[in-house]
């Protein structure tokens, strides 16, 4: 696992940290397009359990993923205080429902520690390292696997 951490591009990087329940996560700021408040989504038929539906983002149809559910935690109960992180994942743009955005971090690769070896889908698909910032644990996640490669799994 440490390989992945090492393979990250050298130098400092900026991350956006956000909160889901009592855990903190962060993603690369370069993949984040904007952050907006929660608006009710239109449910999609036959959607995976973690897709809440679609919303209108200035004319584009944007799927909303309950990141909490996607990461294997309990379903979020969206309120007006929840935010949607609009992120670019590969060629698509998705909205990630999270509890709140907490921080913008500037870190170097040395700050990233390898993920502890725990057997879970979350660890395999998303976790790319952990950060210790001011005694907080922030998990650095990668969004590439947000929609499974094998689309049939999504259905």
């Amino acid at each position: 696992m440490s390989n992945i951490a090492k393979n990250l591009v050298q130098g400092s990087r900026e991350l956006i940290a956000f909160r889901i329940g009592d855990q903190e996560f962060c993603v690369n700021i370069m993949s984040v397009r904007e952050i907006r408040g929660w608006t009710p989504a239109t449910p999609m038929p036959h959607a995976p359990y973690y897709v809440l539906g679609v919303i209108n983002l200035r004319g584009a149809v944007l799927p909303i993923v309950d990141l909490s559910m996607r990461l294997g935690m309990k379903a979020a109960e969206p309120t007006v205080r929840h935010v949607i992180i609009v992120a670019q994942v590969n060629t698509k743009v998705v909205g990630l429902l999270v509890d709140a955005v907490s921080d913008i971090l500037t870190i170097t690769d040395e700050n990233i520690q390898p993920t502890p070896d725990v057997a879970s889908e979350f660890e395999r698909n998303f976790a790319r390292g952990i950060l210790a910032i001011e005694k907080r644990l922030i998990c650095y996640i990668e969004l590439d696997a947000i929609f499974p490669q094998s689309e049939s799994e999504a259905a």
């Binding site: 009710p40 999609m44 038929p45 584009a60």
Partner: peptide, 27 residues
Amino acid sequence: IKSLEANYTHVPGIAAATILGDGRVAL
């Protein structure tokens, strides 16, 4: 008419999406 495939994927039974006057997406 708005494409669903652009950011999501084809949904069986749904041809496309649109945005109604209240700003919400309708299928």
